[in-house]
Simulated scan of single mutants.
Amino acid sequence: MISASNQQEYYQALLEKKSEYEGVFYVGVKTTGVFCRPTCPARKPKIENCEFFGTAEEALLASYRPCKRCRPLSHPNQVSDLVRLLVDAVEANPEKRWTNQDFQELSVDASTARRQFKKRFGMTFVEYARARRMGIALKQIREGHAVIDAQLTIGYESSSGFRDAFSRIMGAAPTRSGHHRVLRASWLDTRLGPMIAIADEEALYLLEFVDRRGLEREVERLRRRTRSAIIPGCTAPLRSIERELGEYFDGKLTVFQTPLRMLGSPFQTEVWSRLLQIPTGQTSSYGEIAATMGKPTAYRAVAQANGANQLAIVIPCHRVINANGELGGYGGGLSRKQWLLNHERAMGAGADN
């Protein structure tokens, strides 16, 4: 049963179409008989015509049918068939330079492709394909191939055009990129909304909700700190975390095994290591963590390190609350934090039975 205070909170989230509430609740509209996700673009009903549910199944059992506009039974921001088709086409020939003729052969409207990719990845399809090509060029240069060879491989006849395009995407001219590495970025759909994951071939560097405030700055800091190019793609750690997140949200996994790369000061990395020791279904306070580190007065510094964590869910900063029992802060939003804690308590209770 959802409390009256939560109903008021959920209704306000519905009015504001807050993406951080995706997966936290569903709303049944009594006047239409449909149920929606929080971000549904349809006209908002009055609160007296709303009925709130914790799961889509509860809404279905209450005789509501899924909304055709927001499709509450699918993942939020689910990949469209068009996006999947074009991503597969790029992977089949990542060195290809796309023309209008290529779109016509796939029976794809170029403007539609641009719009859908912009919504999905924050870049147009042409920018996506170009980033993929540049990743190949960067790898060749890093392996010792001549810049001119990399340039010709990905179809640039003009060296100046190649340098300009390379710099726009990678942040450095090709002749100065010898110490650069490549990090791959992948979009992951989850029960609580889409996340972005960034990894190399060995470990996961970043995992954040896409709508987290300041995410762009986080990604840019990561790029500068690692002196890496970040392009769309997939690696073993990205495949691993996608699988493990699915198992976690299904209530089947409590300990993540995906290798992690924690980039922080010695104090920050110690705090993050302490977070990993908080058992699933339990919480700790900033003061308690500071005390276990032998620095009982450093609770504010612990809170700052907690907020600087770039590996959401996996390094469970959501398990840290205020000493008075209040939730405290969370970059992904307090509604998600509460959902994660409730989810993990349920998993812990199931393990005890």
Rank of each mutant, 00 (worst) to 15 (best):
S5D: 13
Y11Q: 05
Q12H: 15
A13Q: 14
L14H: 08
L14T: 09
E16W: 02
E16S: 11
Y21V: 04
E22V: 08
G23E: 04
T31Q: 10
T32P: 05
R37Y: 04
P38D: 13
T39Q: 07
C40Q: 02
P41T: 00
R43H: 14
K44T: 13
K46N: 14
I47E: 09
I47C: 07
N49I: 04
F53D: 04
G54T: 10
T55V: 04
T55I: 02
E57C: 00
E57K: 12
L60K: 10
A62W: 00
Y64K: 01
R65A: 08
P72G: 05
L73G: 11
S74C: 07
Q78I: 01
Q78W: 01
D81N: 03
V87T: 12
D88R: 10
A92L: 03
N93P: 00
P94N: 12
R97N: 10
T99L: 10
F103M: 13
Q104C: 01
E105N: 12
A110N: 13
S111L: 10
R120K: 12
R120M: 10
G122S: 15
G122Q: 14
E127T: 08
E127N: 09
A129G: 11
A131S: 15
G135Q: 04
G135K: 07
K139W: 00
K139I: 01
Q140Y: 05
G144V: 00
V147C: 04
Q151F: 03
T153C: 06
Y156N: 00
E157H: 12
G161F: 08
F162Y: 10
A165Y: 02
A173P: 14
P174M: 00
T175L: 13
H180D: 01
R184I: 03
L192C: 09
M195D: 02
I196S: 08
E201Q: 13
E201T: 11
A203D: 08
R213H: 05
V219L: 13
L222P: 07
L222W: 06
R224G: 06
R224T: 03
R227D: 11
R227I: 07
I231E: 06
I231W: 03
R239A: 03
I241M: 02
E242C: 03
Y248A: 06
K252V: 05
T254K: 12
V255G: 01
V255I: 07
R261C: 12
M262W: 00
L263H: 12
F267M: 05
Q268M: 08
T269E: 11
R274Q: 14
L275V: 00
P279D: 07
P279E: 09
S284L: 05
G287A: 14
E288N: 15
E288Q: 15
A290N: 01
M293Y: 01
M293L: 15
A298F: 02
R300K: 09
Q304F: 09
Q304W: 03
Q304A: 11
N306F: 00
V314G: 03
V314F: 10
V314M: 09
P316V: 11
P316D: 07
C317P: 06
R319Q: 12
V320K: 01
I321T: 07
N324Y: 09
G333E: 03
G333Q: 06
L334H: 04
S335A: 15
S335T: 06
W339Q: 04
W339K: 07
L341R: 14
N342P: 01
H343P: 13
E344C: 06
A346M: 08
G348R: 07
G350F: 02
N353L: 08
